[in-house]
Simulated assay, not measured.
Amino acid sequence: MDESPLRLLPWNSPEGRPCYLSTDNPGSMLSGLADEVEAELVSCGEAVLSGAEAVLADAAAGEVAVRFALRRTTESLRDALRVAHCREGRAPGKP
């Protein structure tokens, strides 16, 4: 019996550990939910990037605004890297 590879999901367990999905159906309900979460994380990252660029372009932006923008950008980068790792395991041609 050929086992399907585990899919890294874009969320952690309540204990902070990675969650994986074992299925041979990429169209399953849980796979679809994971796809939606990944897309939402990317979309949120795009919005945060736009806001951070606006803060950086504003010469009058104070330290609080810059720190807030950096904090949100760091969170979004972490999410984007998680999505990249999730998708890496599903890349065509991977063994």
Rank of each mutant, 00 (worst) to 15 (best):
H85M: 08
A65W: 09
L70F: 03
G89M: 08
L6Y: 04
D24T: 05
P18E: 08
Y20G: 05
E75N: 07
L70K: 09
A39M: 03
A34Q: 03
S43Q: 12
M29T: 00
V37N: 03
P10E: 09
G93Y: 01
S43L: 14
E36W: 04
G27M: 01
W11R: 09
S50C: 05
A69R: 01
F68Y: 07
A54H: 08
E75Y: 12
R87P: 14
L77T: 11
W11F: 10
E15C: 04
G16H: 07
G89A: 12
E46R: 12
V42Y: 07
W11P: 15
S4Q: 15
G51T: 00
A57M: 12
S28D: 11
R90Y: 05
T73G: 05
P14E: 08
M1A: 15
V83D: 11
T23H: 02
N25K: 05
L21K: 10
L81H: 10
R78Y: 07
R71P: 01
V83M: 12
N25C: 01
W11I: 05
C19N: 04
S4H: 13
V66M: 09
R82H: 08
D2F: 12
W11G: 10
G16W: 06
G16L: 04
A80T: 10
L77C: 04
M29D: 00
R87V: 05
S13Q: 11
E46M: 13
S76H: 04
L33A: 01
A65R: 13
A80L: 11
A57V: 14
R87T: 13
R7G: 03
P10F: 05
G32N: 03
P95F: 00
R71E: 15
P18F: 01
T23Y: 03
T73Y: 03
R7E: 06
E53T: 06
D58H: 06
T74C: 11
D24Y: 04
R82S: 14
R78K: 13
G93M: 02
A69L: 00
A69F: 02
R17N: 12
L70P: 04
L6A: 15
S76T: 07
A65V: 03
A47I: 08
D58W: 06
G93K: 00
S28W: 11
L33E: 01
L33H: 07
R72C: 09
S28F: 06
L33F: 02
G93R: 01
S43I: 13
C19F: 00
S22T: 03
S43A: 13
R17D: 10
G45R: 02
